[in-house]
Amino acid sequence: MSTVTTVGAPSVSSPTKRPTAARRRRGRRRLWSWLRGVTIAVVCLLVALPIIWMIAAAFKTNVQVTDPSVGLVFSPTLENFRNAFADGAILGSMLNSLIVGVLSTVLSAILAVPAAWAVGRFSMGRTGSLVLVARIVPAISLLVPWYYLFAQIGLVGSYTVLVLSHMFVAVPLILWIMIGFFEGLPIELEEAARTDGLSAFGSFLRIALPLAAPGTAAAAVLAFIGSWNNFMFALILADENTLTMPVTLFNFISYASTDWGGLMAAATLMTVPVILAAIFGQRYLVAGLTAGATKG
């Protein structure tokens, strides 16, 4: 903002033009909005370029990847993706990530969406604190007991234990987002439905839930991405058959650090769903991400 005032100063002292106050203000505003546009564009480039660089590298040969003078213009190869798909570990762990992500998200939503409605409608403000507690506790302090406990019942390495651990993150997340969402819905519709003879639960199912569909979708997508990205739980609780993508990717760094192209192809495959979510669900996801942040 200070730039605007300093740049505006010479035009004031310029004797030939003698601009009126209004024109000066208009000029300043135009300059300001130009500066604003340029700054935003630069920020976007800074944010996007590393991702673009990763995707580009996935289409490069290993010689091109390690030669920084090969920029973004090169003849692309699908070799890395072909190798990635030929490698059973990557395809298998992608499938594992998908299974664990979908199961944990669906189950969490079934648990948490009705609960969020109950909190939103019958106002129990303290529930939010419990959600916060689940976010605060370092996950490592839970992992040893979980491992011990689930080993007792022979579940370590199974999908069940991965789904349960991911649900531990997803349930509070969906609760947190949906409480705010239900609180924002007008209560009058549900009251009207109830005077027409619908039970309280009926008014949730038939009135509130359909209205909350966008919020639920956003919460579910964020929960799925959380599960998709989760590294630490699978690192400890999975076995070689249930390994999820981030762990496979991590293992790749250690024993395939020279295969940059392959690594980038795998990382790109991981990032594609996320980019799609950002493109198609941007508005709802923003609402989900900022839920509860402005209420204090």
Partner: peptide, 28 residues
């Protein structure tokens, strides 16, 4: 401003991306 939607979409990507993948990408 014009392009607000696009800017917000771009801003969403890093915070939704997998941290392990981000780590690898910066290693490169």
């Amino acid at each position: 401003f014009r392009g607000m939607e696009i800017v917000r979409t771009i801003l969403m990507v890093p915070l939704l991306a997998t941290p392990v993948a981000i780590g690898i990408l910066w290693l490169l």
